[in-house]
Each structure stands twice: as structure tokens, then as C-alpha cells.
């Protein structure tokens, strides 16, 4: 915490930042995935899909709870002083995205739990009759459901944006210094989530809809990446040097092959064929999308740490 609040004023920031390992990448990916899940599942609830008992909006919040907990765990593993984690919650620094994030994450849990309570397995209702009453209340009126859906979408979107803002607020790294970053992470979270729900959804109609949605997200993500790169290239020398890490430098092969080609373009081709009934839906494209999203976080986190204001690159 401390080193990131007082950007640059410590040994771990200059000459190069080397404090973030795989944990942050995993956390950002899972955060984005959960954000996307909340938005999609919130949208399903908002549009009244809960009438269908097979709706994936009953399953997704449970998975999201597990995923966000795993994400928090990896974030916790990254902390230097693990025992002081509670101190985050004694304060609210409105200028610090870290602080915002800590509180958004805290809001994610109750929202997801309310989502889960919409429908529970019959065995649980048998043992705890009160739970059935809660579920019945939540399902009793259209406006309650709409409110739940709306809140899920808002909290999900905040979570998704925050994962990007977290990086771009750290002024010390030119590669993270883009206002496109949060859009990229939000879109990538949405595409990963759509891919994931596509895998677990039980309704044929829902799966088709998600595949179509995923295609739009992927196209949008591709455009955002291009805009991000163009934005850097038309900026000053420091940012041009930073983005060269992705364009021709050390990270370019991984970025263009694993993130852009294998994570966006090729799954898009496969899913476009599937949506147009040329081929069957398979698990290949969704898995590629999710892996691409994960590698995107790794590349951005680690290339960002290597970029520097002096225009040099540190390894």
C-alpha cells in the first residue's frame, strides 16, 4: 500500500518497479471476469429471465463468489504485510483507486450473495426454511428483481473499470498512463465472462445469445486495443518508447500472438462460424478467449512495470 500511495518516493519504484508478480495479473483477470459475470447475470435478472429455472443467472453468482475470493486471495498473497490488511478498511482515501477498490470489493460480496439467494437448491430450503422466505420475497415483485439486476450491473461495471483505473492511476509507469486502459479491461472482462458463461449455460438459446454477445465484445476489444496503441503512438516520446514494448519489443510476440491472435481474432472467427451454423459450438473458442484475457493482464502488468519515464526499458 504505502509504496503505491507515495508514488515514486521509494526504492521499489525507481529505477524500476519490480514488486508485482503473477498475483496481480491473476487478480486483475479474476476481477474483470467477475465484473463481466455480474454485468451479464445482472442483465439477465433485469430483463426477467429468472422465470426460466435453467437461467444461468442462478449459477453465475455462485461461481463469481468463488472467483472473486480466489482473486482476493492472490491479491492478499501479494501484500507485503499480510496482517495489516484490515487497515485498508479503517480509512477511505477518495483520491486513491486502491482504497476505492478495497471498498468496491467489499460491496461485491453482499450483491453476489443477494444474487445467490434468488434461488437455492431444494435441500438447503428443507434444512433452513427461512431461506425459502427470503428467496420468495426477492422473487415476489418485478421491481425488486429489476433493482437487484441494476445494482449487480452497476457494481460489476465499477469493479471492471476499477481494475483498469488501478493501473492507469499509477503515474510512474508510462505504459499504464492511458485513459483507454479501463475500457480495455472492462471489455476484456466482459468477453471473458461471456465466454465463460457460454461454457456453463444450459439453455441453447442463452448460449447462442452469449456467443453473439461475445463476438461483439471481442470486436470492441480489438478496436480498443488498436485505439490504445494509436493513443500511445501519437503521444510524446516516453509513451512511444513504452508502447514499443508491445509493438516491437520484448513483449510484442506474446502480445500479438497470444493476446491479439489467439485471444481475440481466431476465437472470433471460430465463433462467427458457430453463430452462423457453419460449425458446432465447441469449448475451444471460449477457452481461448479466457486465456487471452489472462495473458493480456500478465502482459500489461509486466510490460508496464518495465516501461519508464526516462524512455528507457528496465528488465
Amino acid at each position: 500500500m504505502h509504496e503505491l500511495v507515495n508514488t515514486r518516493h521509494n526504492l521499489q519504484i525507481d529505477p524500476h518497479l519490480h514488486i508485482w508478480g503473477w498475483e496481480i495479473g491473476v487478480y486483475l483477470f479474476l476481477g474483470g471476469l467477475v465484473a463481466g459475470m455480474m454485468i451479464i447475470s445482472g442483465f439477465f435478472i433485469f430483463t426477467g429471465r429468472t422465470k426460466n429455472t435453467k437461467c444461468s443467472c442462478f449459477l453465475i453468482p455462485i461461481i463469481a463468489l468463488i472467483a472473486i475470493s480466489l482473486g482476493m486471495l492472490s491479491l492478499f498473497l501479494d501484500l507485503e504485510h499480510k496482517l495489516y490488511v484490515w487497515r485498508m478498511y479503517l480509512t477511505f482515501q477518495w483520491t486513491s483507486p486502491m482504497s476505492w477498490g478495497a471498498w468496491i470489493l467489499l460491496l461485491v460480496y453482499p450483491v453476489l450473495i443477494v444474487n445467490v439467494l434468488l434461488k437455492l437448491p431444494e435441500e438447503l430450503y428443507g434444512n433452513f426454511p427461512h431461506l425459502r422466505k427470503i428467496s420468495e420475497y426477492l422473487n415476489s415483485s418485478h421491481s425488486i428483481l429489476q433493482t437487484i439486476g441494476m445494482i449487480s450491473m452497476i457494481i460489476g461495471a465499477s469493479l471492471g473499470m476499477y481494475t483498469g483505473v488501478l493501473l492507469s492511476a499509477l503515474g510512474a509507469r508510462p505504459l499504464w498512463n492511458s485513459s483507454m486502459l479501463w475500457i480495455l479491461f472492462l471489455t476484456s472482462g466482459l468477453s471473458s465472462a461471456a465466454a465463460f458463461i457460454h461454457l456453463v449455460a444450459r439453455e441453447e438459446e442463452e448460449r447462442r445469445m452469449l456467443a453473439k454477445a461475445d463476438n461483439s465484445f471481442l470486436i470492441f476489444e480489438f478496436v480498443v486495443i488498436m485505439l490504445l496503441l494509436v493513443g500511445f503512438l501519437t503521444s510524446d516520446q516516453v509513451h512511444i518508447e513504452a508502447v514499443k514494448l508491445l509493438l516491437s519489443g520484448e513483449y510484442s510476440a506474446i502480445f500479438w500472438v497470444f493476446v491479439v491472435s489467439l485471444g481475440i481474432v481466431i476465437p472470433l472467427i471460430i465463433q462467427l462460424m458457430a453463430v452462423n451454423n457453419k460449425i458446432r459450438h465447441t469449448v475451444i473458442a471460449p477457452i481461448m478467449v479466457m486465456l487471452g484475457g489472462l495473458i493480456l493482464r500478465f502482459v500489461i502488468v509486466s510490460a508496464g512495470q518495465a516501461s519508464h519515464w526516462s524512455g528507457q526499458v528496465f528488465r
Binding site: S248, G249, E250, Y251, S252, A253, W256, V257, S261
Partner: peptide, 13 residues
């Protein structure tokens, strides 16, 4: 004309 990292992308294509 380009570096070995860009070459890897061409390898893929």
C-alpha cells in the same frame, strides 16, 4: 528491418 521479437509474430503468421 525488424527485431527478433517481431520475427516471432511473423513465425506465427
Amino acid at each position: 528491418y525488424f527485431g527478433s521479437d517481431t520475427g516471432l509474430f511473423f513465425a506465427f503468421i
